[in-house]
Amino acid sequence: MNIHRLLSGLLAAALLPFAAHAQEVVLKVAHQLPPTSLAQTMFIEPWCARIEAESGGRMKCQIFPAMSLGGTPPQLVNHVRDGVADVVWTLPGYTPGRFPFSEVFELPFFTTSAEASSRALWDFVQEHAGSEFTGVRPLATWVNGPNVLHLRDKQVSSLDELKGMKVRAPSRLGNKLLAALGATPVGMPVPQMAESLSKGVIEAALVPWEVVPATKTQELTRYHAEIDGEHAMLVATMVYLMNQKKYDSLPAELRKVIDNNSGREFSAWVAGQFLKADVIGREATVANKNTIYAIAPDEASRWQKATRPVVDEWVREVSAAGSDGKKLYDAAAALVAKYSKD
């Protein structure tokens, strides 16, 4: 009997490494928007399905939407760095000063198509901005679709009409853009925007069409100004980040699954999903019988000229902090041009 127990114990001990090797990994994935948001349904859930399928069910997600792990949207980067979450989707613009180099993609009239600019952003981060991501592993870096000016109850077609209006912006450079246009910028994360529009704290908001359904922006605003052209007036950079220690702890074959679902082309795919979501958001606004209109080309040129000082100021700020702002700007612009030609 004792020999039987001894043999059983030895066999169990021998099998322990294999059991641990096959143990299921559950990744905690956190973000700021509701579970019905297009970002979750069109981007995060498909990614989770991919890694589960490609890992043979050994790796899965547990999604925590709407900041259900606690904290506020600006804390998401700390959450993934500190291991509160394993993976997060967030906007660098929520933490001004933390991503000083990759912020260049949020300059006025800088990016072209979302897919091309997202490929450019991925390369730029790998080549010039890796220090901004200490403790985390970028899985995707992208820009969203062009921000649209969503107006509560007043149609704006010129700089004169925009002057003094309280407008929500997504980032530090978005605030500077609005100030250069004569508006009064009010910085805040997307989840705060709906209440601020409802109460009249802000009169308008700069956001892409994609966030409209989740925030009911089509019900809180009546007018929507688009600026057509090769370059978007304003976009936000977005990142999908994984805790570096969590990634390092995975067995090689699971790291390979993560690697196969991250990178430049994955970033472009995510940007494409956000563009599809833009279409859905715009259609919801049309269905609500709101007024969508374009800023006239001559007027749009005035807006671009008015915001040029924001670009010059960014170059000076980065240079004053010890880096070559002009060199970084030119490198980012060259990458955007490169991928825009493909």
Rank of each mutant, 00 (worst) to 15 (best):
E313K: 07
S196K: 09
P189A: 02
L11G: 06
P34L: 02
E313D: 12
K245V: 03
V136L: 00
L177A: 05
A114T: 11
T112H: 13
Q32A: 15
K341E: 15
M193I: 13
R119D: 08
F99Q: 03
M233V: 06
L254V: 10
D312T: 12
Q62H: 09
M233A: 07
V136G: 00
D259S: 04
G97H: 09
S68Y: 01
Y94E: 08
I280W: 01
D86G: 00
Q155W: 05
A140V: 02
L7M: 15
L197W: 10
E127G: 10
W269F: 11
V257L: 03
M188N: 06
T111P: 05
I258A: 01
V310Q: 03
G9N: 05
P191R: 04
S196E: 14
A225V: 06
R152H: 11
D342S: 15
L33D: 10
A332Y: 02
D160M: 08
L139D: 01
S158A: 04
Q126S: 14
R316I: 13
N288Y: 07
K28Y: 11
A114G: 08
I202M: 05
L151K: 00
R137K: 12
T95Y: 07
T72A: 13
N243C: 01
R81N: 07
L107T: 09
N175W: 04
A66N: 12
A300G: 03
N147W: 08
H150D: 02
S301H: 11
T217I: 14
A49V: 11
I258Q: 01
P170S: 09
D298G: 09
M238N: 14
S117C: 04
A268D: 03
A294W: 08
V26I: 12
N78F: 15
T184F: 13
D153V: 04
A53L: 15
M233F: 12
A39T: 12
M1V: 13
N288A: 14
D298S: 12
W269S: 09
